[in-house]
Design a binder for these strands. Structure first.
Lengths: 243, 243
DNA sequence: TCAAAAGTGTTTGTCTTACACCCATGA
DNA sequence: TCATGGGTGTAAGACAAACACTTTTGA
């Protein structure tokens, strides 16, 4: 039985990756290009996404979409919002583009974001014209995808304050300063290094390894890892009313 | 032009209301009943919900659904999750029920919750067999609506810790103990009255009125109100990393 | 030996917690 | 005058914030 697309329901994925060396939080986007003999009709970027198949859950669709783009499975994903405005795909450009595609202009999309390690993604093996863009410097975007990315980013900012999802963006072994840099990138703030260090090291689920950085041309830093096991065991949501 | 339903996309609404006198957080549910000559085929409750119309945004649909059930508009609403499992409507009961309705068994629903003051809802004027149930004592529920309610409740628990949405569930004039009781109901915890009082009163957006309770048979309590204006002005999300 | 980033302590103030009794009122 | 829920204060400990210099390393 051939899988059957639901023509008016899609899943779009905001793929976040963090580049440790440039200290940049990035989003993975796909080139959209259409021209006639004389004219460039469409030349921008969009999120990766696809129809939901009739036999799939929404989570399944998101997982499939990520796998097709990056080859990766088992990445952190979160469904954060559905977008369903009747005119979300009705700009001139978007209608032109849709003409060549198989989907309904009245499509509702369920949006997910993924957090993954950029080092796990090999863009040269994708034939999608996929490219990383810093969240602070996005290109021209098609459909309502700028809005979707903004919402994903907002949710990520909030979530990273209350859950240790930030480690999904880092290599398994990281330095304290890596974590601080990442928080600073995501939140757009500066953090005092001494206070941050003390706070992070005091968490029982942050484990110092018997290892230091290698191949750096300066003093090599202590490496740490995040223990999900310990986190899960000790963590109980603390109900501190702090509005 | 007659509004046209999208047959595979719906919005379901979890309507939360708080009953100050019984100190119970309640959900508004609708009776679902179907019988043959001999048999009761369906006898349970469901959330209020409806198809999305082609010209509507998802928010529009939610607003319309609430208005049709309660007559209310301008209530706090939040889209919290989309549900799209292929078998979310495929229990025997649900299929029987759907046969009499106009929708597709492969329907995706975008779920919202509303927070409102029970006193604003006049159930006698609705002809929907709608009824309030305590969140702690829900009846047998149709479709995947138990799951939807659980997720809504989870989101509410989290949100009420970081945003002052709790006041949407209270009358405009309330006592400190009302607020404490409500937090205790939602979170299922006990809170120290003196500490809570101090903390709440210290918020600049909690304003003591020149008024006390009337018609109570004990010492009447001081009344307060919540000032959204002050809250909005002073509030900037404080980025305290507290995982 | 130098450049660069890693790493380190203390103080001050604020916030959280734990805890028990008196007060004002209407019946 | 009594029953009921409203309202009050303090001390101890934990946590957050501000702040500048020394150390280690590879080049």
């Amino acid at each position: 039985m051939k899988p059957e697309k639901i023509l008016n329901i899609s899943v779009d994925c905001v793929v976040f990756g963090y580049d440790v060396t440039t200290k940049s939080l990035n989003v993975l986007l796909i080139k959209r290009y259409l021209e006639t003999d004389n004219d460039i009709l469409v030349d921008d970027y969009v999120l990766t996404g696809y129809h939901v198949y009739t036999h799939e859950t929404l989570d399944d669709t998101a997982t499939r979409v990520l796998k097709e783009l990056t080859g990766l499975t088992n990445q952190y994903k979160k469904q954060f919002k559905a977008f369903g405005s009747p005119n979300r795909l009705t700009s001139e450009k978007d209608l032109l583009w849709i003409k060549n595609e198989e989907f309904n202009s009245r499509t509702i999309t369920v949006a997910y974001y993924f957090l993954l390690k950029t080092e796990d993604v090999d863009l040269d093996n994708t034939n999608n014209n996929a490219k990383w863009f810093p969240i602070t410097d996005l290109p021209d975007l098609g459909f309502d995808h700028e809005k979707i990315i903004k919402e994903a980013y907002k949710d990520l900012k909030e979530k990273c304050l209350s859950e240790p999802i930030i480690f999904k963006l880092l290599p398994d072994k990281f330095t304290i300063n890596d974590v601080q840099d990442l928080y600073e990138s995501i939140l757009g703030i500066e953090i005092d290094n001494r206070n941050f260090r003390r706070k992070l090291i005091s968490k029982k689920y942050i484990i110092a390894l018997d290892e230091k950085q290698v191949g750096v041309s300066k003093k090599p830093a202590q490496l740490y890892m995040f223990s999900k096991d310990i986190y899960d065991k000790m963590f109980q949501k603390n109900y501190l009313i702090s509005m």
